[in-house]
Amino acid sequence: TYTYKLTDEEASRRAEDEWRNRGYDVRVRNNNGTWEVEVR
């Protein structure tokens, strides 16, 4: 499981799409203004 911490929502969406396209399960959540993109 990888977790990315990003401050930019758009960057988190791009990361989400990119990993999803590669067949990974992705979750995005906002934690106090930081976007966490979790990849498994």
Score class of each variant (00 low, 15 high):
36 E>N: 03
35 W>P: 02
20 R>T: 08
27 R>L: 13
23 G>C: 09
24 Y>S: 02
13 R>D: 04
1 T>I: 14
1 T>R: 11
12 S>R: 04
18 E>W: 15
7 T>V: 12
31 N>P: 02
3 T>V: 14
31 N>I: 14
39 V>Y: 02
5 K>Q: 15
17 D>L: 14
27 R>W: 07
36 E>L: 11
34 T>I: 14
14 R>I: 12
40 R>E: 06
24 Y>P: 02
21 N>R: 13
26 V>W: 00
10 E>D: 11
8 D>R: 00
28 V>P: 00
30 N>F: 15
18 E>R: 08
16 E>K: 05
23 G>R: 00
25 D>N: 08
19 W>N: 02
28 V>Y: 03
30 N>I: 11
1 T>Q: 09
15 A>N: 03
32 N>D: 09
3 T>G: 05
39 V>D: 00
10 E>C: 14
37 V>I: 13
2 Y>W: 15
13 R>Y: 06
35 W>T: 02
30 N>V: 12
15 A>G: 02
30 N>P: 06
8 D>Q: 03
28 V>D: 01
24 Y>R: 03
9 E>K: 06
17 D>Q: 14
18 E>M: 14
39 V>K: 00
12 S>T: 11
16 E>H: 06
4 Y>F: 14
38 E>K: 04
28 V>E: 01
30 N>R: 09
5 K>G: 08
2 Y>I: 15
11 A>W: 05
13 R>A: 07
15 A>K: 10
11 A>I: 04
5 K>L: 15
8 D>Y: 04
10 E>K: 09
16 E>L: 11
19 W>K: 01
16 E>I: 13
30 N>D: 07
37 V>G: 00
24 Y>M: 04
28 V>I: 11
6 L>N: 06
3 T>W: 10
29 R>G: 04
37 V>M: 05
16 E>F: 13
17 D>N: 13
17 D>Y: 12
12 S>K: 05
26 V>K: 00
31 N>F: 10
28 V>G: 01
36 E>G: 00
20 R>P: 01
5 K>F: 15
7 T>M: 14
6 L>K: 03
20 R>L: 08
1 T>M: 10
24 Y>V: 04
29 R>Y: 12
29 R>K: 10
15 A>P: 02
6 L>W: 09
39 V>A: 02
35 W>M: 02
17 D>P: 00
15 A>V: 15
2 Y>D: 10
12 S>P: 01
15 A>Y: 10
1 T>F: 14
14 R>H: 10
33 G>I: 01
21 N>E: 12
14 R>D: 06
27 R>G: 04
21 N>Q: 11
8 D>K: 01
23 G>Q: 01
32 N>C: 15
22 R>G: 05
30 N>M: 11
14 R>G: 05
4 Y>A: 04
33 G>Y: 02
28 V>R: 10
26 V>R: 00
22 R>A: 10
8 D>L: 03
4 Y>W: 08
3 T>S: 07
19 W>I: 03
31 N>T: 10
7 T>A: 15
35 W>H: 01
31 N>R: 10
39 V>P: 00
4 Y>L: 10
5 K>E: 15
11 A>D: 08
16 E>M: 12
36 E>S: 04
20 R>G: 04
29 R>P: 01
6 L>D: 07
2 Y>N: 09
12 S>I: 07
20 R>N: 05
29 R>V: 12
28 V>Q: 02
33 G>S: 03
35 W>E: 01
34 T>A: 09
25 D>G: 04
16 E>D: 03
35 W>V: 02
17 D>A: 14
15 A>E: 07
21 N>A: 13
1 T>V: 13
11 A>L: 07
11 A>Q: 09
22 R>E: 05
15 A>W: 10
11 A>S: 12
7 T>F: 14
10 E>W: 08
23 G>E: 02
28 V>K: 02
18 E>D: 10
17 D>R: 14
40 R>F: 11
11 A>H: 07
26 V>N: 00
4 Y>V: 09
33 G>D: 05
3 T>R: 07
19 W>H: 03
34 T>W: 12
28 V>F: 03
19 W>A: 04
12 S>D: 02
9 E>A: 08
27 R>Y: 10
7 T>W: 13
13 R>K: 11
22 R>M: 11
8 D>M: 03
20 R>A: 05
19 W>D: 02
37 V>S: 00
33 G>P: 02
28 V>S: 04
27 R>H: 12
38 E>V: 12
9 E>L: 08
31 N>W: 06
29 R>F: 10
32 N>E: 10
18 E>S: 09
21 N>P: 00
14 R>F: 09
3 T>D: 09
37 V>E: 01
36 E>Y: 14
5 K>H: 14
35 W>S: 01
3 T>E: 07
22 R>Y: 05
35 W>Q: 02
16 E>V: 14
20 R>H: 05
22 R>L: 12
14 R>S: 08
10 E>Q: 11
14 R>V: 11
8 D>I: 03
22 R>N: 06
38 E>R: 05
19 W>E: 03
5 K>M: 14
8 D>H: 03
5 K>S: 14
12 S>F: 08
39 V>W: 01
21 N>W: 04
40 R>D: 05
2 Y>V: 15
25 D>L: 09
36 E>C: 13
38 E>N: 05
40 R>I: 11
9 E>Y: 11
4 Y>C: 12
10 E>T: 09
40 R>T: 12
37 V>Q: 01
26 V>F: 00
13 R>T: 05
34 T>E: 10
26 V>G: 00
37 V>K: 00
6 L>I: 08
20 R>F: 04
12 S>A: 15
4 Y>Q: 08
26 V>H: 01
